[in-house]
């Protein structure tokens, strides 16, 4: 299981790109933190998600 934005999902084995696309994220508009470290976009294709990974996927929203 992989923890994504606080939710456990069974997406072990997906690449980061595969997961983000399958979930409907706009890859150009998100930033990803994998196990506490920022994952550069260039590494999305080759990064495979594994059991126990923790992921934060963020984007900009309105704010002051």
């Amino acid at each position: 299981m992989v923890k994504i934005n606080g939710e456990q999902l069974g997406i072990d084995g997906y690449s980061m790109t595969e997961y983000l696309l399958s979930a409907g994220y706009d890859i150009k508009r998100v930033a990803v933190e994998l196990n506490g470290n920022i994952l550069p976009k260039a590494d999305y294709d080759e990064t495979l998600l594994k059991d126990g990974d923790s992921l934060e996927v963020v984007s900009f929203v309105g704010g002051g």
């Binding site: 934005n5 606080g6 979930a23 409907g24 994220y25 706009d26 508009r29 998100v30 930033a31 934060e56 996927v57 963020v58 984007s59 900009f60 929203v61 309105g62 704010g63 002051g64």
Partner: peptide, 17 residues
């Protein structure tokens, strides 16, 4: 213009950018 950073929505919602 200021913005905030929050967990992204998976649904293809409109993006402020």
């Amino acid at each position: 213009i200021t913005l905030a950073v929050r967990r992204a929505n998976t649904k293809e919602q409109e993006n402020i950018l």
